[in-house]
Amino acid sequence: MATPQIHIVKVQKIYRTANREVHALQDIDLEIYAGEFVTFLGPSGCGKSTLLNAIGGFSLPTSGTLTVDGKAVTKPGPDRGMVFQEYALFPWMTVAQNIEFGMEIQDKPKDFIKTKAEELLTKLQLKDFRDRFPKELSGGMRQRVAIARVLALDPPIMLMDEPFGALDALTRRTLQDELIRIWSEFKKTICFVTHGIEESIYLSDRVVVMTYRPGTVKAIVPIDLPRPRHTTSPEFNELKNILGTMVMEEQSRHQKAELAGTTAD
């Protein structure tokens, strides 16, 4: 493969608060290639969101270099569309307005905006909800709107922070399948944060397993199963066991740290 699209070298992130320092990320080296679907897997507090926010440009690393398409990341931008865990839809805008907002910011022509919004409303099965406000939608619907809002700007990279974490199992599976469809249709690079082992195997090309504080890359596990994947196949289960063991190790470190009182979470 050619040069990586997202290139992370020796990235470190230290949160300094009044009375303590948290080493959230340490010595992260990661290369992500265009069109890849990568998940970041690890227990709560291991720095998954921190890493994603660094790529998104929301909170820059303390040291190390982080480049996207060869350019250092300095601020958020529409080339890296973010789907937040908390939906983050604008509640005062209708579904259609939420989707159109980004394109209006980018000064796209009116006709283009209408057509594109229509296309996305159809694609994500939101047509009947176009004039609803987010508060009137279920969690699954809201996350569809959030995905559509990001897709409207056609970013090469999509960053997703536990986007389906709050959904029930059935809705989650539906959206996972839809995401895979979108990913292969639009040829996006997707960085997807999760603490679900099954979710990470089901979705991604590679799973980046992270250690608990300081957050480092524990292992990178390629998932070479053909899609659509069957969660009950022996290969799937084997991967589940491998990843499960890794995550449990980190989880128990987390618990030990908690018992020792070295964490304030």
């Binding site: 601020k75 958020p76 890296r80 973010m82 937040f84 983050a88 604008f90 980004g102 700007l153």
Partner: peptide
């Protein structure tokens, strides 16, 4: 979160 979402869209 709204500020971040809007920044992300390039506002």
């Amino acid at each position: 979160i709204y500020i971040r979402a809007a920044q992300n869209l390039g506002a």
